[in-house]
Write a protein that binds this DNA or RNA. Structure first.
Lengths: 132, 132
DNA sequence: TTTCGTTATTCCCTGTGGTAAATTACGGTA
DNA sequence: TACCGTAATTTACCACAGGGAATAACGAAA
């Protein structure tokens, strides 16, 4: 079968410039997309359990992410308490808020870079649409 | 133990802004760092077998990457021949050369973005060094 | 002291991406 | 025709990240 390759049915290039960004700490990933969404869900729900359910990840996984973030920050992004009223809970610290806004800034800049660079590369290499 | 968190022994922030970029085609990844290095090794060695060995990946994996790239391009990036003198071999096409230079341009732009944005974010948020 | 819902921890299971190895196909060359 | 080193393909196996379930720890309130 003939390979239509790089174009979709509209004739536009089917290639897309993609990527991911994250912030590394001393033991690997410190902040990434999923981690920051988790922080936001924790702020919203006040518990790791509910935050995990809302993201459809296991409590175990969510807890490990929280632990990893807290270990890599001089001050925890999240404070937990087990037992007590309502069984306990989890609350976002000021540090956590700052981490969220820092990451979204980074993330937003990156999305803009992707769009701009794709445009620039298409302009610079007219044949890019088919890698010609 | 006290969590030293975000600084290394020099007092500089231990956080690093990282990321990956790739080019998506119609069945997922089309070009990425490993794939492009593979293309270069194929150009250098003239065989998938030797290219794979030089990268310490399995022949199977290398072959799948080549297949995937060829399927997603209107013209193959790599041409293979089985049998014949020397048992056959693999050669990079003009299309393959273009793919390599396109990706490295994209990759280089991204590295620059990472450095610039890290600098900009540190300037914009003075407390970023400790997420303070 | 019992209850309750959460955090914290452990154990087992599984899907998956990959390697390793064996086998076949290939086609020039001697 | 036999040989050779590669491409192509199949099968078996393995490592491990993550899910799920089970259990303990916790501490305020009734």
């Amino acid at each position: 079968m003939q390979n239509k390759g790089s174009r979709d049915k509209t004739g536009k290039s089917a290639y897309r410039f993609r990527g991911r960004v994250w912030v590394d700490g001393k033991e690997g990933t410190f902040l990434g997309y999923g981690r920051v969404v988790l922080l936001e869900r924790i702020r919203e729900h006040g518990s790791i359990t509910k935050a995990a359910r809302s993201m459809e990840i296991s409590y175990r996984h969510a807890w490990e992410l929280v632990e990893s973030m807290n270990r890599q920050s001089p001050r925890p992004l999240v404070e937990t308490s087990a037992g007590g009223k309502g069984g306990g809970g989890t609350r976002l610290t000021e540090e956590g808020e700052k981490a969220i806004s820092l990451f979204w800034k980074f993330y937003g800049d990156f999305q803009k870079f992707l769009a701009d660079d794709e445009k620039a590369l298409r302009r610079a290499l007219p044949g890019i649409r088919c890698l010609r």
